[in-house]
């Protein structure tokens, strides 16, 4: 009856590509590469057809350790035309560097929040999926912001990043409240625990970048994102 009500789905994959991820990176890549297919299938099963699918990848390491490749990212790639580039980019991510234990995961998350999300069409889903095995450097850390390649758009505090994510009554959020979802495969560490607990529309699988995730648990996660809230 309502042919216009299809979903425009944008997904940003934030993938930790530091050396500590070497053991798990191939599995994370497999999860990242299959995520959109599984989400589309779950949405179709619920009668939610997809009119447009775009994916963007942000590989991250640590600005304090590797200034030149702390962030590697694609633009939004529209599927199916962008599928080859998406797969090539994900497959080419290589585990290296990282230095100390915390990584630049919040910078990757901030860049994801600031991505040019689809604003047209009828119903939208804007999904950020983040894989990491480490805590993150606090935003505004001198060791990070002083690096010449540090993105100027990244907020300098968690409060500022939270306001960009927004809450139900936000008027100045960058993310659209109806559309946004955040899925964290991250350790029970800061800032991930607080984000999962305090930001709206989050799912958190406490783990080292999703290690130990069972198939049925991934199905549950996909179904949660595919369904309305």
């Amino acid at each position: 009856m309502n042919e216009s009500l299809k979903y425009a789905v944008d997904i940003v994959m934030c993938i930790d590509a530091t050396m500590s991820m070497k053991r798990t990176l191939d599995r994370v890549k497999d999860s990242a590469l299959s995520f959109h297919t599984r989400l589309a299938a779950a949405m179709e099963e619920k009668g939610r057809s997809i009119s447009q699918l775009r994916l963007k990848v942000i590989g991250f390491r640590d600005f304090g350790d590797r200034a030149d490749d702390a962030i590697e990212q694609t633009d939004f790639l529209t599927f199916p035309d962008g599928a080859v580039e998406f797969e090539r980019f994900v497959r080419d991510l290589t585990a290296r560097g990282g230095g100390d234990i915390p990584e630049s995961g919040l910078e990757a998350l901030a860049l994801a929040v600031q991505a040019p999300w689809e604003q047209g069409l009828d119903r939208r889903r804007h999904v950020i999926v983040l894989f990491t095995d480490a805590p993150a450097h606090p935003l505004g850390s001198p060791s990070q912001v002083s690096v010449r390649t540090y993105p100027q758009s990244v907020p300098h505090s968690m409060e500022e990043l939270f306001s960009q994510w927004g809450h139900a009554q936000s008027s100045d959020a960058l993310m659209e409240n109806s559309a946004k979802r955040l899925l964290l495969f991250a350790p029970e560490d800061q800032p991930w625990e607080d984000i999962a607990d305090q930001w709206n529309h989050t799912l958190f699988f406490p783990s080292e970048a999703g290690e130990g995730l069972e198939e049925w648990e991934m199905d549950e996660i996909i179904n949660t994102i595919a369904n309305s809230l």
């Binding site: 979802r181 955040l182 607990d197 305090q198 799912l203 958190f204 699988f205 406490p206 549950e220 949660t224």
Partner: peptide
């Protein structure tokens, strides 16, 4: 629960 977050 193994899966947490404010959507649950």
């Amino acid at each position: 629960r193994k899966i947490l977050g404010t959507m649950r």
